[in-house]
């Protein structure tokens, strides 16, 4: 609507085009600036992070990364986080897609009622459930040792009402003719699901995976309650630990923050192309 053509005259429209660029550039700096500062400052010597002199050649270092890696146990934490999000996204995809397929394609008594029950669960925020969920996890032995804590971080989030709802919508839009052809060939229900329906909705599957990965990579409250031992810490917990435990070293903290961001950025960049324009509800975690 604010297109340059809207204003009459060539020079005026040229001016408007420049104006558009200038405003865009200023706003882009506001959004990009903090993240660029994070990366640049993580490469500065401790004493010169808040001091000036960034334009001089000296004062740049990789030491912060080595220190952060050592002090925050980043190697272990990155593995833990990767394991956590991959199990949730991968295992969850399987479990939720199966349920979604049943709701979309298999007829059984009470289907609508059960589905309505699942849809209601979408609005429940994790934070409300965190405390009672903690007790359930504890009762089931999902706290404590390494294996138990990793299970505690993942198993409660495998089944997700929103993902079931989202995938069901996409199964409904898979052409029935595909499955009917396979039925005539004598395919069983599992083959209809696994070999026919699933492969024809890859973008929807990718969307669910991306949303899960982004959401759980940043998990904080739940790991804070479950992953209490040092060897079970996720990246976010390591960062928070570095941030609160003296001695507070800004350089180490920034290096750790960059390391906690890089994997998800790279993944997002690579995976973006597979994602459908998600429907608006995807905004709710």
């Amino acid at each position: 609507m604010k297109r340059a053509e809207a204003t009459g005259g060539r020079s005026a429209s040229k001016l408007a085009a420049y104006g558009t660029w200038v405003v865009s550039a200023i706003v882009a700096v506001v959004f990009l600036g903090p993240l660029l500062w994070m990366v640049a400052a993580s490469l500065r010597e401790e004493a010169s992070i808040f001091g000036g002199g960034w334009l001089r050649a000296d004062g740049w270092t990789l030491e912060n990364y080595a220190e952060a890696w050592r002090r925050a146990g980043l190697g272990r934490a990155l593995v833990n986080s990767a394991l956590q999000v991959l199990v949730i996204a991968g295992g969850g995809l399987m479990i939720n897609a199966m349920a979604a397929y049943a709701f979309a394609r298999l007829e059984f008594r009470g289907r609508e009622a059960v589905f309505a029950g699942v849809v209601i669960l979408i609005v429940l925020p994790v934070e409300v459930l965190a405390v009672p969920m903690f007790f359930t996890a504890r009762d089931l032995g999902l706290t404590g040792g390494y294996g138990a804590a990793m299970a505690g971080l993942t198993v409660p989030f495998l089944a997700k009402a929103f993902n079931i709802y989202f995938l069901r919508q996409h199964f409904l839009s898979v052409p029935r003719a595909l499955e009917e052809a396979a039925v005539i060939d004598g395919a069983g229900t599992w083959r209809l699901f696994w070999n026919v329906a699933l492969p024809s909705m890859k973008p929807a599957l990718a969307t669910v995976v991306v949303l899960d990965l982004l959401a759980h990579w940043g998990d904080f409250l739940w790991p804070l309650m479950i992953a209490t031992r040092e060897e079970t810490r996720t990246v976010q917990l390591s960062l928070a630990n570095l941030f609160t435990q003296p001695p507070v070293q800004w350089g180490d903290i920034l290096a750790c923050a960059v390391m906690a961001t890089l994997p998800v950025m790279l993944f997002f960049r690579w995976f973006q192309r597979y994602v459908v324009a998600t429907d608006a509800r995807a905004g709710i975690k």
Binding site: I95, A99, L140, V155, F157, A159, A161, I164
Partner: peptide, 11 residues
């Protein structure tokens, strides 16, 4: 699988 997990960890 999905309904059992939702029952145990949400409901």
């Amino acid at each position: 699988p999905a309904l059992a997990l939702l029952a145990v960890f949400v409901v």
